[in-house]
Simulated scan of single mutants.
Amino acid sequence: MEIYSFKGKRILVTGAGQGIGRGIAVELWRAGANIVALSRTRSHLEALQSEYPSIDIVDVDVSDWEKTRTAIESLGTFDALVNNAAIAICEPFLTSSSSNFDRTFDVNVKAVLNISQIVAKKMIENKIHGSIVNISSQASKAALKDHAIYSASKAALDALTRSMALELGPHGIRVNSINPTVIMTAMAKVGWSDSERCKEMLSKIPLGRFGEVSEVVNAVVFLLSDRSSMITGVQLPVDGGFLAT
């Protein structure tokens, strides 16, 4: 028996070319959803589609407000949305630059506002009781060295999530965020290969390990499903207890 079924549901997943976003798109596809996968990198999308031909793909840089708006408007109506696209530029607070601040907030916050506005408006017009999940981070809740801009962007995303939940709730649209710790994507395995850096972070996680992509995917699928029908406006840590310490 299927635990989750999204048969007949149309779902947009951003940042779906690789890592967590790809994992989310594939798992929702397996559960019967009609997936539109969005990414900036065409080659990643083509690799995804070659493996899962029924997944539709769209390449656009979400930091470009107008191009993104045009692209999303053309895609029609969705039953659910996962805002996963993000960038992380790590640099010390004292040398954080204006350009990196703008780039980070354009992708991590402004693009979520932009895409969600269009998707939510169409949900309302079509009386769809939809679900939106924003992928945030433990960095929104706890200070991490050299993450000043990234942490600020994810804290802003959490606040945006709560505001969206408040205003979209009366239309039957739920909005939540997932706040993961370090997740072992291919990129993270390279970034956390330094044993001392890795040891320091692991010492702050009660479960004593980093997360797997599937563990974030499982939480996203739950929050998109009817099994979380009374849950909205929450920030759900998937962090092995990092934020509990």
Rank of each mutant, 00 (worst) to 15 (best):
Phe93His: 07
Thr95Leu: 08
Ile57Arg: 01
Gly130Tyr: 10
Ala86Trp: 06
Ala165Glu: 06
Arg103Lys: 15
Val220Asn: 01
Ala120Ile: 05
Asp146Asn: 15
Asp194Thr: 07
Asn114Ser: 12
Ala88Cys: 14
Arg174Asn: 04
Ser203Ile: 09
Ala155Asp: 11
Arg174Pro: 02
Arg69Leu: 00
Ala47Arg: 15
Glu125Gln: 15
Glu27Ser: 06
Cys90Val: 07
Ile173Phe: 07
Leu81Ser: 02
Thr77Cys: 12
Leu166Ile: 14
Arg40Gln: 12
Val238Lys: 00
Met230Arg: 13
Gly130Ser: 05
Leu202Arg: 13
Ile118Cys: 06
Val112Glu: 01
Asp64Glu: 10
Arg30Val: 00
Ala186Cys: 04
Phe6Pro: 04
Lys9Arg: 15
Trp192Gln: 03
Leu160Asn: 00
Lys9Tyr: 06
Val217Gly: 07
Asn218Glu: 13
Thr77Asn: 14
Val112Ile: 11
Glu167Val: 10
Leu157Val: 05
Gly15Val: 02
Ala244Glu: 07
Ile135Tyr: 04
Gly19His: 09
Gly15Lys: 07
Gly169Pro: 04
Ala31Gly: 00
Gln138Asn: 14
Asn114Cys: 14
Ser163Ala: 08
Trp65Gly: 03
Ala47Cys: 04
Ser99Val: 11
Asn34Ser: 13
Glu215Phe: 05
Leu75Met: 09
Ala152Lys: 11
Ser99Lys: 14
Thr68Pro: 13
Phe242Glu: 00
Gly15Gln: 04
Thr185Leu: 12
Gly21Asp: 08
Arg10Phe: 03
Lys110Tyr: 09
Val216Cys: 07
Gly211Asp: 00
Arg227Glu: 09
Asp59Ser: 15
Ser43Glu: 15
Asn176Leu: 03
Ala88Lys: 13
Ala165Gly: 05
Met184Gln: 10
Gly191Val: 00
Ala143Trp: 11
Leu113Gly: 03
Pro237Gln: 03
Leu45Asn: 09
Val119Leu: 09
Lys67Asp: 07
Met201Arg: 12
Asp158Arg: 07
Ser136Lys: 03
Asn126Asp: 04
Arg40Leu: 09
Ser99Phe: 05
Asn84His: 10
Ile173Gly: 02
Leu202Gln: 08
Glu27Ile: 02
Lys9Ala: 05
Gly76Asn: 05
Trp29Lys: 13
Ala143Gln: 08
Glu167Arg: 14
Ala16Ser: 02
Lys199Val: 06
Gly21Asn: 10
Ser228Phe: 02
Val220Gln: 03
Ser116Pro: 05
Thr14Ile: 02
Ala139Gly: 07
Asp146Met: 08
Ile24Ala: 00
Leu144Ser: 11
Gly172Leu: 08
Glu91Cys: 10
Trp192Ala: 04
Ile205Tyr: 09
Met123Cys: 02
Thr95Asn: 13
Ala86Tyr: 10
